[in-house]
Amino acid sequence: MTLFNPTVARVLGWLTLASLIVLALFGLWGAPPDDVQGDVQRLMYLHVPAAWVAYLAFAVTSLASALWLWERTRSPVWDRVAGASAELGVMFTALTLIIGSLWGRPVWGVWWAWDARLVTTAVLFFLYLGYLALRRVPADADVRARRCAIAALIAFIDVPIVHFSVTWWRTLHQEGTVFDPELKANIHGTMAFTLWFGVLAFTLLFAYLLDRRYRLECLNEGLADRQLRRAIEERVRGAADRDAPKVGADR
């Protein structure tokens, strides 16, 4: 009923917790403050890992959807993985946008900038928010899985087009964005370590939450099945109690 072996899942949980604590220690005290931005820059240790996990989650959703659509690998497992991963992706995208906004305010002086990467991330957020809304539309399990798998792939194909068009649009108007890749070249050793460690810790967190969400989905499905079975039993018993000879004609 879980995505991973229960022992693996438990170890993963403890590892995630430990690495998040280490990340907090390094992020808040271990790494030196930024020369220019000071302590505000420490938000990077959450912002970049969150963005990475968001992209990872959407990649997992797309892969799982493709695996569901391919008849040789079709299994309800992939539908559940796709849904769980999309939920995490939306959550981490929101986290990325919120942390980025909090970071942007003191550094750029604005909450939001019409930078290509920001706009793409915002569109991504709404793309998968729509996908999650579609998942909540009640339907037969198979119908829903097929519908959602196709919608996930439509969204996935759209991401490069959105990114390309938005980049094109912004670079036509303004030269050099705030995300100059050359500025990142010079980074302190401890800062680089903390950043990479953050990516690792968040990846573990993603794997752990994915497993938990998957299990929750399994339990929900089991609950729905059980409720249905009970309702049928009650109905049958009720009909039998009311009038035995009429059972066949009872509608």
């Binding site: 709404f126 793309l127 729509g130 809304a133 579609l134 919608a151 439509i154 087009i161 068009s165 649009w169």
Partner: peptide, 20 residues
């Protein structure tokens, strides 16, 4: 209610392209 939410983000490049 669902079609607008699903469709608008996907066609955002079209709005961008057509407008520019």
């Amino acid at each position: 209610t669902l079609v607008p939410l699903l469709l608008l983000p996907v066609v955002s490049p079209v709005l961008l392209g057509a407008t520019r």
